[in-house]
Amino acid sequence: MNLIFSLIVLAILILIPLIGVGVLGLSSLFAIFIPYLAFAIFFFGLIYRIIDWARSPQPYKITTTSGQQKSLSWIKHSRLESPASSWEVYLRMFFEVFLFRSLFRNLRADFDGKRLIYGSAKWLWLGAILFHFSFLVIMIRHLRFFVNEVPSFVQKISAVDSFFQLGVPPIYITDILILAGLGFLLLRRLVDAKVNYLSYASDYFPLLLIISIALTGILMRLYVKPDLYAIKQLTYGLATFNPALPKGNLSMLFYIHLFLVSSLAAYFPFSKLVHMVGVFFSPTRNMPNDNRMSRHINPWEYPVKYVTYAEWQEKFRDVLEEAGIPIDEEWTNVAQK
């Protein structure tokens, strides 16, 4: 059901530019206005999410500690699993952000007869790393459409990425890898009953959306060629805030690709995809485990107004004596001090 719902949403998203450009002829709306709007939503939405998260207090130190805490000098402490200094936290965050270290520890629970067993499951990590790094390379490669004199690092990356020179134009390695990664991540949700049970439409939809973006892109590179010069005129115009519809023919496939990318950008700050900034705000990852060295002050804490027993007794001494309730002299001394 969740999958069908996301497929329907995706189909609608593909139909919108088909009708909008193909039937109604709203080229400049789909080529200029919607991309700008979508990327404005992307930038402002993400900055809003960052500031919103940065404003939320972290009342407790809840760092994940799956290693030996730093204590006595002769006990070896685990720098990454239980970081004590901020330098070690940076190191842990680096491994988390760039190498997905927590996913590398992914376990799979299963029954061995009646016994529950856990086994290492690195496939999720592999699929995730293939997808994320391919996406990064693809994004860097796309700079060739936005910059006039393309920087040399983009040229080098493109050259390495088409290293095998398969076909004309040569196929990019990352294009294959991103489909492999995304395909695995989608299949995992469909095939594995346990993961399938906890997959919502909001899990399927981003996967399907990014798969469609990749497929339309690959299709345009290898089979249904658009006029690349016209596309660069448009995208360069967009990047230099000088947008104009080019004279050449922008293909329908390009409009679909552009609209799906715009949808992804606009959807980004409000979906699970925002883990891109969320990972930096994970309190279990970004806090040092130094509870014994420095006290974590709860930011909500304010000076509480309280009355000690001695003060209370002093205040009501007359009434207490009258009622025959014994006065605790020990407390009186404390209060007088």
Binding site: R141, V150, L228
Partner: peptide, 8 residues
């Protein structure tokens, strides 16, 4: 075009 679009 080729230089401009990193076509090699």
């Amino acid at each position: 075009c080729h230089k401009n679009l990193v076509v090699q």
